[in-house]
């Protein structure tokens, strides 16, 4: 561990705000991309489920 205290780690000789902002933004972007992928996956699955339901209903109705 290079820094001697948590304060020193956060402050980083005055550069703390720049450094921490960059790392926070990076993780925000990555998490945002992952969340967006999950959300798309979920809506696509919902559409698929309703498509399957529709198909089953169509198969049943003619008989």
């Amino acid at each position: 561990m290079y820094f001697e205290s948590v304060e020193a780690l956060l402050y980083m000789d005055g550069h703390g705000s720049y450094v921490w902002f960059c790392f926070a933004l990076t993780f925000a972007v990555l998490v945002g991309l992952i969340v967006q992928a999950r959300r798309r996956n979920r809506t696509a699955r919902q559409l698929l489920a309703s498509a399957a339901r529709r198909r089953r209903a169509e198969q049943r109705s003619p008989q």
Partner: peptide, 28 residues
């Protein structure tokens, strides 16, 4: 790599601690 770069690497001789941004900037 981020934790390593933030906590354990000594600061750059010229740039000080701001060089740690390299660990997210360059990969991106």
């Amino acid at each position: 790599g981020c934790v390593w770069g933030l906590l354990f690497v000594p600061p750059d001789f010229k740039q000080g601690n701001s060089f740690r941004i390299i660990y997210v900037h360059v990969p991106a």
